[in-house]
Design a protein around this nucleic acid. Structure first.
Length: 614
DNA sequence: GAGGGGGCGGTTTTT
DNA sequence: CCGCCCCCTC
């Protein structure tokens, strides 16, 4: 038990051992927050307050969930073996809700064998409905409508609420689409991602006896990255822990960067109202960055007024001042980054793998890719199409989904479109005669009868990659012989199996990382370049008019800066070619917020050029 | 059913 | 400027 506390600082220790009910841990960047959460969970077990199955650990993303699970399981390994305990549930909200609804869904009228629709399926369904309803897709963009529907659902607004709330013909039409969309999901027995969460809440609200059952099982609810929860997730955690009061949440409002998809950092703050006796612990010791980096980051984030900001203290040395580089153009900027990388790797013993280039938009990556190729710098580009979203993979999955649920008209529609009418008929015939089989066998047989693979030309590199991906899918299927399990994993775990991903993994240890600021959350690097610090880019031009959104851009900048352990470079370009247009942007207001003496200027500054340009 | 051409849109992205 | 999506044609 004591080994769970060794190496923790006093605040961390207090958070791990606190036994008085609701607990809110405000954990700054690099302050060891996942460590606190997992150690607390393990401590509850070690001290005999809970058995592992009484714990429920939740977070938003698979990546974070996996990290959390691995760390916790290794902490619990010994005791689980000794006492023959089950391992606790540690996963993301959607997976938990899917588990819950497969079990208890019938109580609120759901089919146990519902399919889960992803964004692509949602769009197909919406387009499908719009055609039937004779709505033109010029004035009514399916993607926009999908967004509106999702937002409404996140706010627990039904189609009827939506129609009552908005007048205007555009909204009335969208409301009608929303209503039809929901009806169709019901008919198909499909749930979209948001449904998983809101039906989870609905279940608990409408069936108190079921809620009670789960409250008694999960006597300790622990949530990581609480600033990323949306309304439904907030309600879920609140409902589950209402009886026990044992809710532990960890988060940092200053790192909330996902409000555009429904996350609301105010959930972190409203907990105090819902649990008046909540204990609040601040983690302000930073193990990651030098004090110089933290000072610069603080100057940026402290301008935010709508949420508390922690003042972090570094446990590392003072370090060197972050550099601000003025580039003449976007190519000049990329050249500077290459030069610095060469210097750092050649003379400062920094490994390329320890370096990251972070940008606001994916479109900025191209220039860096070109420069890295020219300079022979190995790199990995993050972002791009996901394995399960690849056309060929999705096609095969649709074959399986119609086995699972023959009413799935969206999958049938896709099969007809991508396989042709004749092959679709063959698939239909096959379904009449099939027996229970393992997933892999099912795929093989269906590929055979639909002669799908013949679509591809082995001599074309592109097609070869697609065949490779299908092969990969087959080997995933080996791990999930049960079809329902397989489809659930496909929908919710979304692990990467693509060939590209394998190549990436091989390079991880030796290449510079290129990614968006969003993608960098939770990671750390010895050297960080934040590029394109310009008005219109960071902050992004679509955020300039709105105070809330500007604050989020500022948090995004802060998240990027606090990824850096030793060296931080901030760059901007006076002139930039972007989407084929030359722009002359002012330097970012976030840079102007930093007192000049905290930075070191490099690049094309004019003699005595004022820091404050405005 | 495939392949070419025109038009348009382009922030971030997880489940 | 690039890439995707849709539609048209053969």
């Amino acid at each position: 038990m004591d080994e769970l506390l060794t190496g923790l600082n006093p605040a961390q220790k207090e958070a791990v051992t606190y036994s008085g009910g609701p607990l809110l841990v405000l954990a700054g960047a690099g302050s060891g927050k996942t460590r606190v959460l997992t150690h607390r969970a393990a401590y509850l077990v070690a001290s005999g307050k809970a058995e592992p199955h009484n714990l429920l650990l939740l977070t938003f993303t698979n990546k974070a969930a996996e990290e959390m699970r691995n760390r916790l399981y290794s902490l619990l390994e010994k005791i689980v073996e000794e006492k023959n305990f089950d391992r606790p549930f540690a996963g993301n909200f959607h997976t938990f809700c899917a588990y819950l609804l497969r079990r208890e869904g019938p109580a609120i009228g759901l089919s146990r064998s519902f399919v889960i629709y992803d964004e692509d399926d949602q769009l197909s369904l919406i387009k499908n409905l719009m055609k039937k309803m004779n709505v033109d897709d010029k004035n009514f963009k399916p993607a926009a409508i999908r967004g509106v529907i999702e937002h409404s659902k996140n706010d627990f607004l039904t189609a009827e609420d939506f129609l009552n709330l908005h007048s205007g013909s555009w909204h009335q039409t969208v409301g009608e689409i929303y209503r039809t969309y929901q009806q169709n999901l019901k008919k198909i027995a499909a749930l979209d991602f948001t449904d998983l969460l809101i039906y989870g809440v609905k279940l608990f609200k409408e069936k108190p006896e079921i809620l009670k059952k789960y409250q008694r099982i999960y006597r300790f609810v622990l949530v990581d990255e609480y600033q990323d929860t949306n309304k439904a997730q907030y309600l879920l955690t609140k409902l589950l822990s209402k009886e026990s009061g044992n809710l532990t949440v960890v988060g940092d409002a200053a790192q909330a960067i996902y409000s555009w998809r429904g996350a609301d950092y105010r959930n972190l703050l409203s907990l105090s109202a819902d649990f008046p006796k909540i204990k609040i612990i601040n983690l302000e010791e930073n193990y990651r960055s030098t004090q110089n980096i933290l000072d610069v980051s603080y100057q940026v984030i402290c301008k935010n007024r709508k949420h508390p900001v922690l003042k972090l203290k570094s446990l590392q040395e003072k370090g060197v001042r972050p550099v601000v580089f003025k580039a003449l153009s976007e190519t000049d900027e990329a050249e500077f980054v290459c030069e610095k990388i060469k210097q750092l790797t050649d003379f400062c013993a920094v490994a390329p793998a320890e370096i990251a280039v972070l940008y606001r938009t994916n479109a900025q990556s191209r220039v860096f890719e070109e420069a890295f190729i020219n300079h022979n710098i190995p790199y990995i580009l993050y972002g791009g199409v996901k394995f399960y979203e690849r056309a060929e993979v999705k096609d095969v999955i649709c074959l399986l989904r119609v086995i699972h649920n023959q009413n799935d008209i969206i999958s049938w529609g896709r099969i007809e479109k991508n396989f042709g009418k004749r092959r679709k008929e063959k698939v239909k015939n096959y379904l009449q005669s099939r027996k229970e089989k393992e997933t892999k066998v099912l795929i093989e047989e269906m590929l055979e009868i639909s002669s799908y693979l013949q679509k591809f030309d082995k001599d074309k590199e592109e097609d070869l990659r697609k065949l490779e991906n299908i092969k990969e899918l087959l080997s995933v299927a080996e791990n999930f012989p049960d079809l329902t399990d397989f489809l659930e994993n496909v929908a919710l775990v979304q692990q990467e199996y693509s060939l590209q991903e394998k190549e990436k993994r091989k390079k991880v240890g030796e290449a510079v990382k290129l990614m968006t600021l969003h993608a960098s959350k939770g990671l750390e690097f010895a050297v960080v370049f934040i590029v394109g610090l310009e008005e219109g880019l960071l902050p992004h031009y679509q955020s300039l008019e709105d105070e809330e959104r500007l604050e989020e851009e500022r948090r995004l900048c802060y998240v990027g800066m606090t990824r850096a352990k030793k060296f931080l470079f901030l760059t901007f370009a006076v002139r930039r070619l972007y989407f084929g247009q030359t722009n002359y942007n002012d330097l970012s207001r976030f840079l102007e917020d930093i007192p000049e003496e905290l930075l070191k200027k490099e690049g094309n500054w004019d003699e005595d050029e004022d820091w404050e340009l405005e």
